[in-house]
Design a protein around this nucleic acid. Structure first.
Length: 558
RNA sequence: GCGCCUGUAGCUCAACUGGAUAGAGCAUCGGCCUUCUAAGCCGAGGGUUGUAGGUUCGAGUCCUACCAGGCGCGCCA
């Protein structure tokens, strides 16, 4: 319809000789008093043509040969408003037939999207901070799939690097019955694990003095010594213990996410890149581009060449690859197919990392258009008015598992997604648990349950567009909202803004509750009853599909 | 200190990316159940969009400065 109006305007402008100045923009109005569609073209042309906007608008108005449009009005300061007679029968048929143009509009055209999200280090259980990425990422995956993208989801497991050594060392200290010092992983989750007896070594003498020293000075550079001590003590069992604890924690994370409605196509291990020697070729490639140099025994990448604020080490002076090196190889691998879009969802604290990886991708010759990062701001957890601290260091954080067990998966997922991802989010545990109108999740689910209850009460109802009569005002509003389904879904997908979809779900629910209170669905008049049952049916269809895109249940009863 | 993000009703957030009278929910106050789920609906009050300039037909949205808050600035990941 939008394009039809553009064409109508276009021909009018050609006739007036004003078609060269600016592109015609037609938008949906927010206010019904302004018609259904509006164009600001007269305002834009004003300067070029040298006439006041209202005059231009009237000339355009007069030049339009009216066809599908029922009414055209000119409104100050110079808008041209179009009124369209709404016809819902097409929409109704599409919803009844579960039409894919309506519920799964294909804008992706099967383009591959690699979506990486959460990817928390396997050094402890997921906490509430990870929940937002999990809920957001998995919802986005569903939304992108619903719009014709071929989505491939991955969790990047950081199972190489220093932190894993710290983790292994922390485990070892726990096995010895000691409390790991700060800087190590001090959480209780490392206590009483079913470890192997051979990992219980004798406590080395220097260990105690080392720990003592640690508590006195606040030095952090004692970590390598501690790790070395652990390696020496465990000997050949060190790697075994390391792999075991990573596997143990990863398994736990996997289970947590699964219960939270999050599953991945692939769990990609950082260590596999090292095992398969995939880093040297990347370094060679970069060297050929002349963006690698040696300084103080380390290999540096000139990331400043493509916008980073300083150059980065890619291989340390001790010969060990940095995290950046493996991550770059990982992205290189994903981007090897030029028709693939790579999407990374980062915690907002990683925003400084983006220029670095972008720079690397450019240097490797990839199209930067194919790579995009989405930043997720932190969620502040509240219990009523009280803010709950989630400091990971002290190991006193609220785990994701505790959260969804307390408030439920549906409420948790909705709350995590209800705000713009790059905005801070206040997550109120008390509110998420409440079963009333304060809680948007229940409000939406209640609308669906109400419909199901009515349909059940009526007995069998087979929907048909033939049941549709002339709609009332509240019905028109509701149907307008339902008809928006594909448009809103496309917008949500294009902008990767999941919160738009949560708002859409809420909007459908609002219109339905209003309608329900205003209208007796199960009327004695059978024609009227079928018409109203049809509208209920359509609403339930849209609601359940919409909630599915967020991984939230549409309950039959509540 | 430098860089990125944010500042909108008492609170939490929108505003379709520069459009018309800045909108929702919560909280507050007032109405609606002998009828399909009141976990609902209807109504009222509440604003100098952090401050000061600028850009133009038109600014919450763009540019500059300042104020306030968050995050980042390792041969960590």
């Amino acid at each position: 319809m939008n394009n039809t109006i553009k064409q109508i305007l276009g021909t009018a402008l050609t006739q007036l000789g004003w078609d060269q100045h600016a592109p015609v923009i037609v938008t949906k109005t927010k206010n019904a008093e302004h018609g259904d569609f509006t164009s600001n073209i007269a305002l834009v042309l004003s300067k070029h043509v040298g006439l006041p906007p209202m005059k231009i608008a009237r000339k355009i108005h007069d030049a339009i040969i009216d066809s599908e449009v029922t009414r055209i009005e000119v409104a100050p300061p110079g808008f041209i408003n179009f009124y369209i007679a709404s016809d819902f029968t097409e929409t109704i048929k599409k919803i009844i037939n579960n039409d894919s143009d309506f519920f799964r509009p294909n804008i992706g055209e099967n383009k591959a999207v690699y979506l990486e999200y959460v990817s928390a280090n396997p050094t402890g259980p997921l906490h509430v901070g990870h929940g937002r990425s999990a809920a957001y990422g998995s919802s986005l995956a569903k939304i992108l799939s619903s719009t014709g993208f071929k989505v491939h989801t991955e969790y990047y497991v950081n199972d190489a690097g220093l932190q894993i050594d710290v983790l292994t060392t922390s485990l070892w200290l726990r096995i010895l019955g000691l409390t790991p010092p700060k800087g190590c992983y001090t959480g209780d989750y490392l206590v009483n694990l079913p470890t192997k007896p051979e990992w219980t070594t004798a406590v080395p003498q220097i260990l105690e003095s080392l720990l003592q020293k640690w508590n006195e000075e606040t030095a952090t550079d004692l970590t390598p010594k501690l790790i070395q001590l652990c390696k020496d003590a465990l000997g050949k069992h060190y790697d075994e213990a390391k792999q075991w604890i990573v596997h143990e924690i990863t398994t736990q994370i996997k289970q947590d996410l699964k219960q939270f409605g999050v599953e991945y196509d692939h769990w990609f291990h950082e260590s596999s890149l090292l095992d398969n020697n995939e880093l040297e070729p990347v370094l060679d490639l970069l060297s050929q581009q002349d963006v690698i140099y040696e300084k103080e025994g380390a290999q540096w990448f000139k990331s400043t060449k493509h916008g980073d604020e300083k150059d980065r080490v890619i291989k340390r002076s001790n010969g060990v690859w940095t995290y950046f090196a493996t991550d770059l190889a990982y992205h290189h691998k994903k981007l090897s197919n030029p028709n693939t879009q790579v999407l990374d969802i980062f915690g907002a604290d990683h925003h400084g990392y983006t220029p670095r990886i972008k720079s690397g991708i450019k240097a490797l010759g990839h199209d930067e258009q194919n790579f995009k990062t989405i930043l997720i701001q932190f969620a502040n957890l509240y219990r009523g008015k009280t803010k709950i601290s989630m400091s990971t260091r002290q190991g006193q954080f609220v785990t994701l598992e505790n959260l969804y067990k307390e408030v439920g998966v549906d409420a948790a997922r909705y709350f995590y997604c209800m705000r713009k991802s790059d905005q801070h989010l206040d997550f109120d545990l008390e509110l998420a648990k409440q079963n009333n109108n304060k809680n948007p999740v229940y409000y939406i689910q209640y609308a669906h349950a109400r419909i199901k209850s009515i349909l059940a009460k009526n007995g069998q109802y087979i929907p048909s567009s033939k049941h549709f009569l002339h709609p009332s005002d509240t019905e028109v509003e509701l149907l307008d909202a339902l008809a928006e389904y594909p448009t809103v879904l496309i917008k949500t997908a294009q902008r990767s803004e999941v919160y738009q979809w949560t708002q859409y779900c809420y909007r459908i629910a609002t219109h339905f509750h209003r309608y329900y209170n205003n209208t007796q669905i199960l009327s004695d008049d059978s024609q009227e009853r079928y018409h109203r049952l049809l509208i209920c049916f359509l609403t339930a269809q849209c609601l359940s599909k919409a909630l599915e895109n967020l991984g939230i249940n549409a309950p039959e009863s509540m």
